[in-house]
Every structure is written in structure tokens, then in C-alpha cells.
């Protein structure tokens, strides 16, 4: 079983800046601290759901209504604020 342990570095890839905010709001901190792989698992399950549960976009007729417009607006906002980041300076190689 030891060989099946997921490395922290890989799990950290799924840790987005908004994670502390979301886990605080949803009171998930006790779960995350005991099972840090939950976030990675959530992304993987979500990814599968989106890929497997929906028809191909070409086949699908998208209904444009307030709900889809709202989702599009939120996704556009998330995309814009994700464009930049903060480059943390790790001190090495003087």
C-alpha cells in the first residue's frame, strides 16, 4: 500500500489559491487536514463527470438563457482573475 501513496507535490498541484477560502466557507478543514487527497479526488471526479456525462458540444444545441449567461459571466470573471499571479521569490543561487 505504501507504493500507492500520492506525493504531496502532486496533491499541491490541485491546491488553488481560493482553497483556504472555500474550505473555510464550507467548513471542510477537518476533512482536508485528515485526507488532503480529497481536493485532487474532487477534481478528478468532476473531470470525469464533465467528460462522460455530457454530449459532444458539436452535437449539443446550447440554450442561451439567463442561467447559461450567468455561468458564462462567472467563468469569464474566473478566467480574467486567473490570468495573473504572484511570483514568489524562492531564495537560491545568489
Amino acid at each position: 500500500m505504501e507504493n500507492l501513496t500520492v506525493r504531496d507535490e502532486l496533491l499541491n498541484c490541485f491546491s488553488l489559491p481560493e482553497k483556504p477560502f472555500i474550505t473555510d466557507i464550507l467548513h471542510l478543514n477537518p476533512i482536508i487536514s485528515k485526507a488532503p487527497f480529497v481536493i485532487a479526488l474532487f477534481f478528478i471526479i468532476m473531470g470525469f463527470c464533465i467528460c462522460l456525462n455530457h454530449r459532444n458540444n458539436i452535437e449539443k444545441k446550447i440554450q442561451i438563457n439567463f442561467r447559461t449567461s450567468l455561468i458564462a459571466a462567472i467563468l469569464l470573471f474566473c478566467s480574467i482573475v486567473s490570468l495573473g499571479g504572484v511570483s514568489v521569490f524562492i531564495y537560491f543561487n545568489f
Partner: peptide, 19 residues
């Protein structure tokens, strides 16, 4: 805008301050 519309600034630096 790179500073103002930057979610890392909001969640990594501002959110802990508010908390």
C-alpha cells in the same frame, strides 16, 4: 490590472488579513 484583478492577491494575501 495585473494587481487589481489577480485572484492570488485576493485569496492568498487579502483573505488571511480579513480572517
Amino acid at each position: 490590472v495585473k494587481y487589481i484583478f489577480n485572484k492570488e492577491v485576493l485569496f492568498t494575501y487579502i483573505y488571511p488579513m480579513i480572517k
